[in-house]
């Protein structure tokens, strides 16, 4: 057994779990935070993407013990005080989801890519950056549109804040 200590969405958590527990399992089954989805469980679909110490990773491909000591952000940690995160709002506005199963991972990957590229995202980059996220409903068109809209809004907001 391993003692896993994490900060999840700003809250310190700790639990004693089997060493083979995946981070995705830890979040869903130990912490009962089921916003993080498990789609393929073979590291391909990206529904389980969370941020570990600020970087997007597939939580089904990391042991909880490997992550111990880290700060983890999940889809549940994005909305602030009841207001949707700009990426969540953009997915709603631009119909970036149908069944919604891949959406937590799509949004976590989108936030990570916007953080890394700032306002310099274009369609080609977004599509390349979505390599690790699979959606079976939308054909990606509206997902890409949502991410580009959110990136523009977030960089606009950053500019206003800087001025």
């Amino acid at each position: 057994m391993s003692k896993v200590e994490l900060t999840v969405n700003g809250r310190a958590v700790s639990a004693e779990v089997e060493d083979r527990t995946l981070l995705s399992q830890f979040l869903r089954e130990t912490l009962n935070m089921t916003g993080t989805h498990v789609g393929c469980d073979t590291s391909q679909c990206g529904a389980c993407v969370v941020h570990v110490d600020g970087k997007a990773v597939k939580s089904c491909t990391m042991l909880a013990a490997q992550a111990s000591g880290s700060e983890v952000t999940t889809i549940e940690g994005l909305a602030a005080g009841g207001a949707l995160h700009p990426v969540q709002a953009a997915f709603k506005e631009h119909h970036g989801l149908q069944c919604g199963f891949c959406t937590p991972g799509m949004i976590m990957s989108a936030v990570d890519m916007i953080n890394r590229y700032g306002g310099k995202l274009d369609e080609k980059t977004v599509r390349a950056e979505l390599e690790g996220n699979i959606c079976r409903c939308t054909g990606y068109h509206n997902i890409v549109k949502s991410i580009l809209a959110a990136a523009e809004e977030m960089s606009g907001a950053a500019k206003v804040a800087a001025e």
């Binding site: 997007a56 990773v57 950056e129 690790g132």
Partner: peptide, 9 residues
Amino acid sequence: IGDPQVRHM
């Protein structure tokens, strides 16, 4: 290599 999430790890 792989995808962005794989490259982070």
